[in-house]
């Protein structure tokens, strides 16, 4: 029973840390499936986290915070879109630039506006998201195993958490069952064909980039307004890159993205849990190894040793209309 409770605790924190990964990786999915590589997930998330934390504390409303987060993230996504779609610039370079601008600007503006060393003020009640209890969670908690799973693992999360998980089947549906999704996938594989069919490649790609911005906005808002109460300097701490790794690990497929994010989240939760504890058979594993594991796994996958990750064919290539 003790092991079971530990497992539930670990799984619960797995869900908690996976949510921003899922949101950001799905954001990247929309963009990359349309042929726009996005290294800037990290920066958009960070900027959104800051905007959310700042607006929520100034206006005292979590909804306004969320709106600000999404707005800022979409603006950055549009910069990326302008550079890589309209100006046909290098998409990697543009993404790197956005990461740095977000990293610097959040600290500078945060210090100038709030003077707390780059933090935003602690968010109070009503300014941040609160957890919701599913019905009968308290009553059912005493049932062995199932009750514990229901009330400790499934219940007691933020609305955004349920939203993130609902987004996975939704994205699958959009991608594989709607016209927009078909065109989105087509423009990432063969934009010439899409253009021949009389559909604007540029507008389609811009819409994909905007979707990416919106979801990064949610991811950032989750970080600063749900997981913690306020923005802290550099709080994404590489989560955008883990999300990118998860996206590749999932071979750009929505349901796989969820599992990849849960796996990486689980590794994260384990590494916190295992600090100083020895594993059976293996002995004590350095925490740093656990932290590096998502990246190592992604590299191994990319190398084609566990299946092959093939990116969308037109990814990273700006589209030039023939004259």
């Amino acid at each position: 029973m003790e092991y079971f409770d530990t497992l539930i605790v670990i799984l619960q924190s797995t869900v908690r840390v996976s949510v921003p990964l899922i949101l950001a990786a799905l954001a990247g999915l929309y963009s990359e499936r349309a042929g726009i590589f996005d290294i800037g997930l990290e920066g958009k998330m960070l900027a959104a986290a800051f905007a959310g934390g700042a607006a929520a504390s100034v206006y005292g409303s979590a909804i306004i915070g969320l709106g600000a987060a999404i707005f800022v993230s979409v603006c950055l996504a549009l910069v990326h879109g302008f550079a890589s779609i309209t100006q046909r610039g290098n998409q990697i370079v543009s993404g790197v630039a956005i990461n740095f601008i977000a990293l610097g600007a959040t600290v500078i503006l945060g210090q100038a506006w709030f003077r707390q060393g780059g933090r935003t003020p602690q968010l109070g009640e009503g300014e941040r998201f609160t957890t919701v209890e599913l019905p009968f969670a308290a009553e059912l908690a005493d049932i062995p195993i199932l009750g514990s799973i229901y009330s400790n693992l499934l219940s007691g999360h933020f609305l955004l958490t349920y939203f993130a998980f609902a987004l996975v089947p939704f994205t699958w549906w959009v991608l594989y069952r709607t016209r927009f999704g078909l065109r989105l996938r087509a423009v990432g594989e063969n934009p010439g064909a899409v253009d021949t069919a009389g559909i604007s490649v540029i507008w389609l790609r811009y819409r994909a980039v905007i979707c990416c911005g919106i979801l990064c906005g949610f991811a950032g808002a989750y970080l600063s307004m749900a997981m913690t109460a306020g923005f802290v300097k550099g709080m994404t701490a590489g989560k955008g890159f883990i999300a990118l790794a998860a996206l590749i690990f999932a071979k750009w497929k929505p349901v796989n993205v969820m599992f990849a994010c849960l796996l990486f989240g689980f590794l994260d939760a384990m590494s916190i849990r295992m600090q100083g504890n020895a594993l059976p058979l293996i002995g004590e594993v350095p925490v740093q190894f656990m932290q590096a594991l998502p990246y190592i796994l992604t590299v191994i996958l990319l190398a084609g040793f566990i299946g092959k990750a093939i990116p969308p064919r037109a990814g990273g290539v700006p589209y030039v209309k023939e004259r």
Partner: peptide, 19 residues
């Protein structure tokens, strides 16, 4: 941190928005 912004802007304007 101001330098991080400048660095980002230089990468953006001299790199991605070169043309």
């Amino acid at each position: 941190d101001m330098i991080t912004i400048i660095q980002g802007l230089v990468i953006l304007f001299a790199g991605a928005l070169e043309n």
